[in-house]
Computed example of a mutant assay.
Amino acid sequence: MRFATQLVTLTAAMLVLAGCATGVRTAGDGVPVPPSETPVASQTPADPAAQQLQAWIDAATAALPPGAVPAEDAPAAFHSYYGWPCQPALQKDVYWTLPDSTVAATANWLNAQSIPGLVGTTSGRPPIPDDTDYDAAGAGYAPADRTQQGVVFTVAKMTGGVAIRAEVAALTASAVCPSLAPGEMMGLPGQG
Rank of each mutant, 00 (worst) to 15 (best):
K157D: 13
E72Q: 15
Y81N: 14
I128N: 09
D100G: 14
W56G: 00
V103P: 02
P126T: 11
E167S: 14
D73I: 01
A104H: 01
G138M: 01
T121M: 10
D145I: 01
Q149P: 12
V119R: 08
A71C: 04
V151F: 04
M158V: 11
A104M: 09
V155M: 10
P116A: 10
G117A: 05
T61R: 13
W96R: 06
V94M: 11
G120P: 06
Y95W: 12
S80P: 09
A105S: 15
T122N: 03
G138P: 04
V151E: 05
L118F: 06
D145H: 06
L90M: 11
P66E: 15
Q54S: 10
R125T: 11
A71I: 00
G150R: 01
P116E: 06
V69K: 15
A74E: 11
P66L: 13
Q91M: 14
W56I: 04
P116T: 07
D93H: 11
T121P: 07
P143G: 08
A156L: 01
L110C: 08
G117E: 09
R165K: 15
T102A: 07
P143Q: 07
T97Q: 12
P65H: 10
V152N: 08
A142C: 11
A68R: 06
I164W: 09
A139Q: 02
T122R: 02
V119E: 13
V168L: 04
D73M: 12
Q54D: 12
A163P: 02
I57E: 11
L110W: 02
G150K: 04
Q54P: 00
P127K: 08
V152G: 09
L64D: 05
A55I: 03
A139P: 02
A71R: 05
A139L: 02
